[in-house]
């Protein structure tokens, strides 16, 4: 077994070179390069988490804006509805007013017409009386040859007309 057989002659060179070479590995690779590699990894991890945080923030902002937009939109809608309701109410009021005016006019014309009708009726009645009394006077004069005064005849006609 050379490990034991050669121990006495080789141990010092083994130890010497191992310490030198492992020392170089430790200081150049271990201390010099490994921290940089790990730094790169850490930097990447940080960047990823930063990007994720930024994305989250952007999403939150978008949500907020959407909520604000929704609120504004619902306000606008409510405003528009109020406007429409007001316009409707105004229009209804105007229509009512117009209707009332028209109704008044119609009523006025109706009463006027009724008055005219009743005037015409009374005029017609008076004429019928006159014609009837004249006719009655004529008839009496021709049949009986009696001269009857106009007054009495018209009283008689009035009485007869009133009866029937």
């Amino acid at each position: 077994m050379p490990q034991i057989a050669q121990l006495a002659e080789t141990y010092s060179s083994q130890i010497f070179w191992l310490l030198i070479i492992f020392g170089l590995v430790f200081f150049i690779v271990g201390r010099g390069m490994v921290p940089k590699v790990m730094d790169t990894v850490a930097q990447r991890d940080r960047q990823i988490s930063d990007d994720l945080a930024a994305a989250q923030a952007a999403r939150d902002a978008a949500d907020e804006q959407e909520a604000a937009w929704r609120k504004r939109e619902s306000e606008n809608r409510a405003e528009a509805q109020a406007l429409v309701a007001q316009a409707k109410a105004e229009a209804a009021a105007k229509t009512e007013k117009k209707l009332a005016t028209a109704q008044k006019k119609v009523d006025a014309r109706l009463t006027e017409a009724e008055e005219r009708i009743s005037a015409a009726r009374s005029a017609a009645t008076a004429e019928i009386e006159a014609v009837a009394s004249e006719a009655a006077q004529d008839i009496i004069t021709r049949l009986a040859g009696v001269k009857v005064t106009k007054t009495s005849i018209s009283a008689a006609v009035k009485k007869a007309l009133a009866n029937g």
Binding site: T10, S13, W17, I21, F22, V29, M33
Partner: peptide, 28 residues
Amino acid sequence: GYNIAFTNSALWMAISAVALWIFVAGGM
């Protein structure tokens, strides 16, 4: 008075160290 001959053992230590250095340097 101590022998520090550069042996085949030391050579392979050096080869391992250089290979390791190349490997890590490639990832820098």
